[in-house]
Design a protein around this nucleic acid. Structure first.
Lengths: 254, 254
DNA sequence: TATATTTGTGTATTGAGTACACATTAAAGA
DNA sequence: TCTTTAATGTGTACTCAATACACAAATATA
């Protein structure tokens, strides 16, 4: 993994070592690397998945880690996360949301790295998706046990954020094909929330959002009564990408 | 301001400059400084205030900025924010909440600094509060115009977060004296939310939270009918400090 | 044509959010 | 001490969202 190579290279760099030892110099304050980690969620087989890569750090041999990289000196923090996403998946028309910054001293075994976590939702079956390495794999979030670094905690934090946001914004639109049944949408919500939902109440709630349009088409290849297909309104999807104002708290007493 | 001195010192450091120029070296990735900025809120004269310091950067002469500092190589990110708070105010028993990390390339004129913002609520009139410098002043949030760096945006982001959280958690407890009237509490909420509230509905809503105990004492020194005094339950206050689980989103259909 | 499986729909209940008005209390001043 | 002033303290009606829950209609398959 790129970031790990670099860190290894740096911590063995005599210039840096001497700088770190030279306590009276203010240079020591630059001896912290800044990185981004992307929690890229997908959805397959009725499970929420996350894209992980085999760690190539000795300390974490056999473990997986998130996709991340050091931020370049002339690169905005947000831009770094888009670059990682683009480089790793070929996707660049997806929203990325900053979640939290992790900065424990010992979170990285090879040196001090402060990392900002972003999450994103991508279509595992998109034709645009282009996984660039055999080391990359989709893992069911539920089945994740031990990961490199503090990446398990990062994923947990992002899942929490994701759960908070899916009822407010139609961000899940690219976890499904363009046309989908309400059942498929409900299964997706259940997978993300990790809890079963009542069908009638779920439909009522979704209808209230007016995110969807009902099509004049039916599911095919199902062994039972087919459901009507739906798709997201382009308007709703756009607003989910740009809308950052969470003023749902303004449900205050007036 | 400490952070600004250091950054000035570093960007004039020939060692660093050569490292930044040496593009083939991975050392360049350490040429990003990591800092924290604390948005320390207070409450006085029925206004939400924030603690600012006069900037000593030439570029920002005459402007105020937030309290911040570079993170030390052996210091957790969260610990750095507590250190800044403690050094600047003498307070160390206050919660600090991470809000967002700001990482635009050009946000700092003297060099690349990625900064994580935290917010905190402190009692302006606490006897423990010990403002260590004459350059430090409380400013009404509403009246803030131009600040150094992107600090105005940082404050806006933190105010947004604060507004979201005050109805979920009793975090405002140290913006008021131990004993206070419901009117005083309401004025505080109005100041934070920037909107008037209905008295009866506010009381109903607060009562529902069971954060308060009603005392057998009345306000004094008021020129009208005195209200009953209240205080926060210690239990409620403790949970506001530790509680990080925002599962209010679990109001999902079951 | 019977069976299995899923779709599609509605109502009753509860609780929160909101709008809104009047009697009570204490202090201050005439 | 009586009147004025300015705030406290309280309850009801309406709307809307959240929830629990059941049955008829549609399709595929055997």
């Amino acid at each position: 993994m790129y970031i790990e190579h670099i860190v290894k290279a740096m911590t063995s760099n005599p210039l840096l070592k001497s700088a770190a030892v030279e306590k009276s110099s203010h240079l020591e304050y630059f001896n912290i690397a800044v990185s981004v980690d992307c929690v890229i969620f997908g959805y397959e087989d009725k499970e929420l998945k996350v894209l992980l890569i085999q760690s190539d750090l000795e300390e974490f041999s056999g473990l997986y880690s998130l996709l991340g990289d050091l931020v370049k000196p002339d690169e905005d923090l947000d831009a770094a996360s888009y670059r990682v996403l683009k480089d790793r998946t070929g996707l660049d028309d997806v929203f990325l949301q900053q979640v939290h910054t992790f900065g424990s001293v010992n979170r990285h075994p090879s040196g001090r790295v402060v990392s900002t976590a972003y999450y994103s939702l991508v279509d595992i079956n998109s034709h645009k998706l282009n996984i660039d390495s055999n080391d990359l794999h989709w893992h069911a979030v539920k089945g994740i046990k031990k990961l490199a670094f503090d990446h398990k905690q990062i994923i947990e934090t992002c899942v929490k954020m994701l759960r908070e946001q899916i009822m407010e914004h139609p961000i899940v639109h690219n976890l499904l094909p363009e046309k989908f049944s309400l059942r498929a949408l409900q299964e997706l919500y259940e997978a993300i929330l990790g809890t079963p939902l009542d069908r009638r109440n779920f439909r009522k709630k979704i209808a209230l959002k007016s995110w969807l349009v009902e099509l004049d088409e039916l599911e095919e290849d199902v062994t039972h009564r087919p459901g009507k297909l739906h798709k997201f309104k382009t308007k709703a999807v756009k607003s989910s990408v740009s809308k950052k104002d969470k003023n749902f708290f303004l449900t205050m007493c007036t």
